[in-house]
Design a protein around this nucleic acid. Structure first.
Lengths: 196, 196, 196, 196
DNA sequence: GATGAATGAGTCTTCATTCAT
DNA sequence: AATGAATGAAGACTCATTCAT
């Protein structure tokens, strides 16, 4: 999971941050905590990362990379556009559930700090989000998706639904039923909640 | 807007915090900043508020109260359930747009801190959210809304859509077209995006 | 000596820094040292001074002010220009000897840091130096001083002589014979060392 | 300029420090900076130099050696004592101007640190300064220079004048007119500034 | 001759908060 | 109702230096 060519110290640091974020939010984790947990000196952290946030974003980036890799694989095969969207919802919810540490980071930690938006982690997310838009547009071409709706708005609704369905479960450490949530979200958004 | 029976010092403090939050996030605003902006001493802040977060939540609560009051009014009259939901979407987006400081607080600041969830501000939000659920259930009874879908999931999709449609505009200070966003969200969620 | 309207904490801090600089150079003195010596907390230092160097320059400025005040008094009365210059040499050497802490600051600590040159302390020194130039020009008008020499160069020689005559004594804590040094400097610079 | 029998790494380190000191003071230059600029690892610096200051003094010593070698050559030939002094002034000012990095070191960096005074670089300077005193004494014997003045004081005035005439130009990177400064200094010190 | 991983001690600075007046 | 002096504890970051390979 952690790049194997990294020197042991660097690996330990990354692992330590991940582990600490399981129970605490990033701000409350100190460099000293990370160093102690990793079993290295504080100085070493600054050898490998330019500052505390840089460490966060690097860790985040690695995770997102793996997530996107998985999404890509899930989208292989000749799925319909709606199936693709559903696959993305499923992957996202699954990933939020399985990697709650990262879910917390992405949904909570990161929004606060302007520098996130110029990080590589954010770049990856943007790419992902752009990709979703492409799938929607493709679906419109296919006539799977209505051409009377704003594609960007559709994407926002989808992403918002995913996040909102998970966020409180993440915050309060409650169970997430991935399949159920996926079905619910897609049923609602694909078919609408209006009785006719 | 600020309770008029408050002593001048208290009023100045509340006004100062609001003003500071326009450009900066809560954590980066210091008590000293607030005092300076308000033109009072730091000590006075602790006369009126038990601590920094308390000040934030009190300010927040006042705002939410006003928001809920407005929503309540918008829901008066015999609207259909879907119209009520649409009214809520509209009020929410309108409020996020008009009171960006508070939008930022609710969407960004607040999630970080566990003590928010036991604040009066949060209680109000919970009441609001519960209310939305009631409207959905009522719509199901009415046969306006499908009874095959999970009402809670519907609410999450709705709330997520609202938030996601506004959050980046709030963060990057971009224009929000309230009517357009409201229509887009409701069209999508009420009728679904599937061409079917 | 320290402004009496200052709050006790501020006074203690200033006194502490002065005392510490007797034996150690500014860089080796830590904020923690100053706080301990002053019997206050480190935080208080930052209430009164924006940073460590600011404290240094403020302390320095106060001293220079007093020095200039004394020089001004020494120059009162209708002295010849050369007598005025000699008075300045004497005052300077006397001050370096008596206030070795400040001598060290001015001759050693301060040159290193660019921000000194935009400090009020430096402004005062500049005023003083400008004043010396005026005296020289006045002497030229009087026919006390040759008009064939560059006034600025004369000032540099004078100032350099003073400093060079004291610096090693300050660094190595050796005795300074104020009158002898004053006489030597003035004899040499006023009359030249050339046997005609 | 750098000893050619040095291994390439050592040469690169020395060159790097010299280059870095052009714009920054020694304290602000880190070992890491030097290593990066030199294109070597930090460890290598400690192969060749026992510590950071040792590196500085070694670099300095080399330079002083070259300076003294040049001075020695300038003093060859049967000059009068005053001519010799003037030659030294000229060489010094010329050297300060041409090698501003070293000028900065000698006038600014070095005074701060007690260990300089036990360095070989300092030994060389002392030898030079002693030599100036010899020339003055010789001049007194010759009847070129007054025997009523303190020879050490004369030396201090001379050295102080040189330094003071250059220091601000070095700090603020301003032009130095070597010949003019030399003439000014010598005119003033040799003949005095007093009219009559 | 040179690398690169790691150390460890230190330092400035920040800030919410208290309390006597 | 408000001031202003002072606290105290924590936290990010820096950097010269070492050493096995």
């Amino acid at each position: 999971m952690i790049d194997e060519k990294y020197p042991p110290g660097k690996r330990k640091i990354i692992k330590a941050l991940r582990s600490l974020l399981k129970d605490r939010d990033f701000n409350s984790v100190t460099i000293s905590d990370i160093a102690k947990t990793a079993g290295v000196t504080e100085g070493l952290i600054y050898k490998y990362f330019t500052n505390k946030r840089d460490l966060l974003y690097k860790v985040l980036k690695e995770h997102i990379n793996q997530f996107l890799f998985k999404v890509e694989k899930d989208l292989e095969g000749s799925l319909s556009s709606l199936d693709k969207l559903k696959a993305i919802v499923h992957s996202s919810v699954y990933s939020y559930d399985k990697h709650r540490v990262f879910a917390k980071m992405l949904m909570i930690e990161v929004r606060n700090s302007p520098d996130y938006f110029s990080s590589e982690a954010c770049d990856l997310i943007r790419k992902h989000v752009k990709n979703i838009l492409e799938i929607i547009k493709e679906g419109i071409k296919n006539r799977e998706i209505k051409d009377t709706l704003n594609p960007i708005a559709m994407r926002e609704v989808l992403l918002g639904a995913i996040e909102q369905s998970c966020v409180s479960k993440i915050i309060f450490n409650r169970k997430i039923d991935v399949d159920e949530i996926t079905d619910d979200i897609c049923n609602i958004i694909f078919n609408g909640l209006s009785q006719n």
